[in-house]
Design a protein around this nucleic acid. Sequence first.
DNA 1: ACAGCCATGTAACTTGTTACATGATTTT
DNA 2: AAAATCATGTAACAAGTTACATGGCTGT
Lengths: 203, 203
Amino acid sequence: MSVRQSLLAILDQGPCYGYQLKSEYDRRTGSTWPLNVGQVYNTLERLERDGLVARADASEGEQQHFQITPAGHTEVASWLGSPVVRSAAARDELAIKLAIAVTLPGVDVAAVIQVQRAATLRTLQDLTRTKNMTDDPETAEQLSWLLVVDSLIFQAEAEVRWLDHSETRLGRAAAAGLAATPLSTDIPKRGRPAFAHSEEQDR
Amino acid sequence: MSVRQSLLAILDQGPCYGYQLKSEYDRRTGSTWPLNVGQVYNTLERLERDGLVARADASEGEQQHFQITPAGHTEVASWLGSPVVRSAAARDELAIKLAIAVTLPGVDVAAVIQVQRAATLRTLQDLTRTKNMTDDPETAEQLSWLLVVDSLIFQAEAEVRWLDHSETRLGRAAAAGLAATPLSTDIPKRGRPAFAHSEEQDR
DNA sequence: ACAGCCATGTAACTTGTTACATGATTTT
DNA sequence: AAAATCATGTAACAAGTTACATGGCTGT
């Protein structure tokens, strides 16, 4: 939803045409998450469909300007006024991955953690290096770009901490003789073996 | 991609039928990110289309078992063997939101930060309370669930820290007289005013 | 009998994303 | 003249998500 909402928020500043919106977006969020131009036009079409923006009728050969509608304005205000809920909806791919890996027999979870940590540390280094190049921002765009980089750094640091934490937790669990579970064993109501090479049949 | 990959990884343990996959997924990742059953069947169909799983021919009235193909097995190994890259692709909705908000004139960024922090702190409290209920895990599922909760806690903490950090940074910027930029002002090459009520025309 | 879970699917839809075609204008 | 940038779109597709229909089985 962030592309859609961002473009709408920019449009709340005044009418824009497609290409302009793309450059505005780039100017404001930097090159971290590049935006394909085509997506702008798609998004605009969908925003128009939902009644949040409207085409300003251009007088012949003029660029197609889009302007926000009252409903769109309300939407932007609501977006800016309400927090982003991260736990719900947006699945954390890494958390899920590790959660799955832990429950899977025969998977070297320690290795998974190690690979991830190495990658994240490398990312962290790159980010820090990049950031040091432009501290002390002079424009609002530089400032917002800096905030994005900060965010990535904070997140990456938290990720590393979590990986360390998980590693020790897993060590303790292994020491306690806790092993991963194969498919559907708990409460074998109708005792479904699930494995093809399993002996008994469940029906 | 996490749902698709997770289901495939579970299938790597042995053949499953649709409903079973859903419960396996739930058992392993807990209730944080619930999975709709319908999605399992959709995902299975797409995995089959991509040649990563195959229908095991059921002998009359039997459940439709799916089994992983060699290609699917390779895919799982590759998934577990390579790190999740977070900075690329996956846009951070909050970071983008704040980055946009900072560059938008007339937006009370401090308020946005405050609302977000309040919400995140509340989430953090809930998570901590939930976690304390089941520390010291006894099964691999409890362990993986705990890791997920830990992950959310670590992330939420990082988020709060980042929000604080951003607040002070914004304070400094405001003190330095740094203001948000209106639409397309930098380098007015062909001097496009962008605002409808603007005086001059650019072409 | 009925409620509730087990089980399988289908259809419709969302946002995000990329590849491609097309032409105008500007710069080199 | 050629290359780069500006500018607008279209078409197709990916993954995620939900609502709905359908039927069997189980426990009360």
